[in-house]
Simulated scan of single mutants.
Amino acid sequence: MMQFANAWTPPGPALLFCPADRPERYQKALDRADVVILDLEDAVSPENRVTAREALVANPIDPDRTIVRINPAGTGDYRRDLAAVVETNYRVVMQAKAEDVDSIIDTALQTVALIETPLGATRVNEIAAAVNCIGLMWGAEDLVAGLGGKSSRFGPGEERAGQYRDVARWVRSTVRIAAAAHGKFAVDSVHLDIDDVSGLVAEVRDAVALGYTATACIHPSQVDHIRAGYRPSDDEVDWARRVVDGSAEHAGGVFKLDGQMIDGPVLRQAEVVLTRAGAGGDVPDQSE
């Protein structure tokens, strides 16, 4: 398993996109979220990208809480984006439409690979193995466009209205598995319907259950819902503490708690809960 030494990880679960050509929003976005993704790609019109790169360089914010999304490899904007990033203290980029290992290695930076094309989806395991790939994210809309489709979600009147269609769910699952297989973090995709709070909450709950590290968002109003979803409840923390303590009492062997048999996999799930809660200072290292 190839790992980048001292790789960056998101300091919190809510990653907020911000157009790079709107520097007056940089700090506001950072104040609201755990991480800001300064976007040089889809959020910026082609004619504004020069201005966006100039703003990126001229308006620094905390590099430990910032990702810069750059344009797809093989484009002129990609090269110019990388040149601009080099002039800053930012050390993490998000590679839009990542499709091969070379495009990740070529950044020479810690890179979050954004899997959002059919070709990228078929190569996600190779991409995740790149030494400077520190995490994966997936995107539904470019994926469906690449399929020649028209919607990533079921529409009104369909049985599962508002939920992802099966191909999108498959890519979401594949990205999560590839990230875990290669020891990289995973970021769940944005929920574009800002008013659909219940849909966002449900997706965050599912992301947490599957071990996603964070969820990206497009509006500050979504941040609190994401944070709440990733924060374990008091009951979950209490259960996890009792599992960890019980395991220690039984020297790591199988034991019963509240009628449930507790073994190694359940113990690891409890340790993850404590890690998310920030309550596990003595929680064993999960990297081994």
Rank of each mutant, 00 (worst) to 15 (best):
I226H: 01
E249A: 15
H225C: 02
I70H: 06
V36S: 05
V190Y: 09
D234K: 13
R242W: 08
L210E: 12
D238F: 09
Q163N: 04
D142M: 00
Q260G: 01
A43K: 04
R176P: 04
V201H: 00
S189P: 03
D31W: 02
Y212Q: 11
D282W: 09
C217M: 12
K97G: 05
P13M: 00
A43W: 03
N132F: 00
V167K: 06
D196R: 11
P19N: 03
S198P: 00
V85S: 03
Q286Y: 02
D42F: 09
L40W: 02
M1Y: 00
E203D: 15
T9A: 05
K97N: 04
G139I: 07
E159W: 09
P265M: 03
D166R: 15
L109P: 07
D188M: 03
P60M: 01
G281I: 02
Q222M: 11
V187D: 02
R227W: 10
A178G: 05
T174Q: 14
A168H: 03
K184W: 08
G280Y: 13
V93C: 11
H225D: 06
V92I: 07
G148H: 04
R80T: 01
D224K: 07
T215R: 14
A214P: 05
G148D: 11
R69G: 06
R172Y: 13
A251P: 01
G252A: 14
D234H: 13
L274Q: 06
R49A: 10
E87R: 15
R123E: 07
D100F: 04
P265Q: 01
P232G: 08
D42E: 14
E126M: 01
R268S: 01
C133A: 08
D195A: 14
I218A: 12
G246I: 09
F17S: 05
E249F: 06
V144D: 02
A113Q: 11
V112K: 12
L136Y: 03
I105T: 15
D188R: 09
R176V: 04
A202F: 08
P19M: 03
T122S: 14
L136N: 05
S233H: 14
A277D: 07
D196W: 08
